[in-house]
């Protein structure tokens, strides 16, 4: 690389950083202003932001674990939906929310294993494989769903003692139901595992250059299977969030495209857990703000246009950020030994 090119690349990085800082600053100022003028609403919007973002963060974590190991997962939507359904049924029939969450995790993992089977073992086109999961989940949940099932309850918020008393920050971050907490912890765990451990190094190697990993004795297929299964269980947690924590019951096709929005979140977040978290918060914030504005009656826009918002935002994000993000080099390609 020549020095001029290096300077160019460096200045591009600086540019992104500066834009990020300015943007972050504006958001922070806006929050402070909002809190001073209307603390109740501001707190409500921010708390809603965090909750809206939870399934998106989880979906994006699922996507990025898979893609980092070289497997595209566009079946996140189906994994979420199926897990939401099974978790709901488990809640209905056992009445035990913990068992229900485990059922959601297990469902996601099973579908993750199915995706790995299709893309690693059968070497199917990974996008078709994900589509199979989406259609299958939609069909199976619709077929087995009976109306009129009721549950004994959903996961409730747990205030973390004195932390929850901190103004603004307390109610937003430290007074949440368990899956929302788990999501925040998962972001940190996935970040640590991916970038600081042997497992993470091997995962990234398998996603970038599988034959390099193979020639030093790493089992590419095994790495991909396990990563996609773990990713699936995280998507399953997102599904469990929908039925056990957010809504409390199941509806047909209730994921509403969140699995796909999560993929945009993953790309926007540059395939990093913290990036995905930040991107998901942005999505969550947009939705929370719109809902609030509509609720307060200040915005006279037909509800259909508000309903479009996350999808339009997804397209805008994809249009603006794909190509600026480095995609794991081997993603989408079945690995064939030489």
């Amino acid at each position: 690389m020549t020095t001029a090119a290096m300077a160019k690349a460096k200045s591009r990085g600086d540019y992104v950083r500066i834009v990020g800082l300015i943007f972050g600053g504006i958001v922070l100022l806006g929050i402070i202003y909002g809190y001073i003028t209307n603390p109740v609403t501001t707190t409500a919007v921010l708390a809603s932001t965090l909750r809206q973002s939870t399934p998106l963060v989880l979906g994006a974590l699922c996507g990025l674990i898979g893609e980092r190991s070289g497997i595209i997962n566009i079946g996140i939507e189906g994994q979420m939906l199926m897990a939401a359904f099974i978790a709901f049924l488990a809640n209905v029939y056992t009445g035990n929310l913990f068992v229900a969450v485990l059922a959601g995790l297990a469902t996601g993992a099973v579908l993750g294993g199915f995706l790995a089977f299709m893309s690693v073992t059968l070497k199917m086109d990974q996008i078709i494989g994900g589509t199979v999961i989406n259609i299958l989940a939609l069909g199976l949940t619709s077929f087995f769903y009976q109306t009129g099932l009721t549950t004994q309850g959903k996961l409730q918020a747990i205030a973390l003692g004195p932390l929850a008393e901190i103004p603004l920050i307390g109610p937003v971050f430290f007074d949440n139901p368990p899956i929302t907490y788990a999501t925040l912890i998962l972001v940190m765990v996935v970040h640590y595992v991916l970038f600081y451990t042997r497992w993470g190094l091997r995962t990234r190697a398998v996603g970038e250059h599988p034959s390099a990993a193979d020639t030093v004795g790493i089992n590419v297929y095994k790495m991909r299977y396990i990563n996609v299964i773990i990713g699936g269980s995280i998507a399953g947690l997102a599904g469990a969030y929908l039925t056990l924590e957010a809504v409390g019951s199941f509806e047909r096709a209730m994921t509403n495209g969140r699995g796909f929005v999560a993929l945009a979140v993953m790309i926007f977040g540059k395939y990093t857990p913290f990036g995905a978290w930040g991107a998901a918060l942005l999505f969550g914030f947009a939705v929370a703000l719109q809902t609030q504005l509509q609720f307060s009656g200040r915005l006279e826009i037909p509800h259909q246009f508000i309903g479009m918002l996350p999808y339009v935002l997804t397209i805008v994000v994809l249009a603006g950020f794909v190509g600026r993000t480095r995609v794991p080099a081997a993603v989408g390609k079945p690995y064939e030994k030489e």
Partner: peptide, 23 residues
């Protein structure tokens, strides 16, 4: 022009179309 994958954008456009035609 932007590299945004049709696999995701077409699905998003489905949701947008449903809302728009509803309206």
């Amino acid at each position: 022009y932007t590299g945004a994958r049709e696999v995701i954008t077409t699905i998003m456009l489905n949701f947008i179309a449903i809302n728009f035609t509803d309206w």
